[in-house]
C-alpha cells in the first residue's frame, strides 16, 4: 500500500486533481445552465413539467451508453465527460430549483407584489432566499452524483480517479483498486460532509422556525 503510494503518489494526485477539475467545471456550468433554464421556464408550470421530464429521460440513460453515443460527435476526452455530467445534473438541479420556487408560500409572494415590490426584487429578495434550502439540496445531489459518475468518464479518456480504478481492474492490481476506491469514496464523503455543514449554516441563516438565536 504505502510502497505504491510512495512510488506513484504523483499519479494519485494527478488523478485527483483531474477529477476535481472535471467535477468543478461540471458544477459551474451545470448550475449556470440550470439557473438560466429555470428562469426561462419558471413562469409556466406546463413548460417546467415538460423540461423536467425531458431531462429526466436523459438522466435515465446509463452513463456508459450516453458517453458512447456522444463520442462520434464530441470525441473522447474531458469535453464529452463534462457534457454528459452537465446533462445529468440538469435533471437534479432544475427539478429542485422549480420545486424550491414552488414551495414559497403564494401569500407571501402576493404580499410582496401587493406592496409594490418589483418582480425581480421579489425573485431575489423573497423567492430565492425562501427556496434556498431546496435549491441547496439539489446542488448537494448534483455534487455527489457528479463525483460518482465522473469516475466512469475515465472509460472515454477523460482522466480522473476512474483511470486508477480501470487500470487496477485491467491489471488485476488490488493496491490500485484500493487507492482508487479510497480517493473516490473519500472525496464523496468529504464533499457530502461539507455540504451538510453548508446546509446547516444556511438553515441557521434562514431560520424560519423561531428556535434559533435572534440574529444570525
Amino acid at each position: 500500500m504505502w510502497a505504491y503510494f510512495e512510488k506513484y503518489h504523483y499519479k494519485l494526485t494527478e488523478a485527483l486533481s483531474e477529477h476535481l477539475a472535471i467535477v468543478g467545471l461540471t458544477l459551474v456550468i451545470s448550475v449556470a445552465l440550470a439557473s438560466a433554464l429555470t428562469l426561462a421556464i419558471m413562469r409556466s408550470p406546463g413548460l417546467s413539467a415538460i423540461v423536467i421530464r425531458l431531462f429526466g429521460s436523459i438522466y435515465a440513460i446509463p452513463s456508459l451508453a450516453l458517453f458512447a453515443i456522444l463520442i462520434p460527435f464530441t470525441g473522447i476526452g474531458m469535453k464529452t465527460a463534462v457534457l454528459v455530467l452537465v446533462l445529468y445534473n440538469q435533471f437534479l438541479l432544475i427539478r429542485n430549483f422549480i420545486a424550491g420556487l414552488d414551495s414559497v408560500d403564494p401569500q407571501i409572494v402576493e404580499a410582496a407584489a401587493g406592496m409594490g415590490m418589483p418582480p425581480l426584487r421579489i425573485l431575489f429578495r423573497i423567492k430565492l432566499p425562501l427556496a434556498f434550502p431546496v435549491i441547496l439540496a439539489g446542488i448537494h445531489l448534483a455534487v455527489i452524483s457528479t463525483i460518482g459518475i465522473a469516475t466512469i468518464a475515465a472509460a472515454i479518456g477523460a482522466g480522473g480517479i476512474g483511470t486508477i480504478l480501470f487500470d487496477g481492474m485491467r491489471t488485476r492490481n488490488p493496491v490500485k483498486l484500493v487507492w482508487g476506491t479510497i480517493l473516490a469514496g473519500g472525496l464523496a464523503i468529504i464533499a457530502n460532509l461539507a455540504l451538510i455543514g453548508i446546509e446547516k449554516l444556511a438553515a441557521r441563516r434562514f431560520h424560519y422556525d423561531g428556535n434559533a438565536p435572534g440574529k444570525p
Binding site: D105, I108, A111, A112, G114, M115, G116, I126, P129, F206
Partner: peptide, 16 residues
C-alpha cells in the same frame, strides 16, 4: 401599489 397599503389575513410577513 407603493401608494397603497395592503394587509391580508394571512399577514404575509417575510419569514427570513
Amino acid at each position: 401599489r407603493r401608494g397603497i397599503g395592503y394587509v391580508i389575513q394571512q399577514i404575509g410577513l417575510f419569514p427570513h
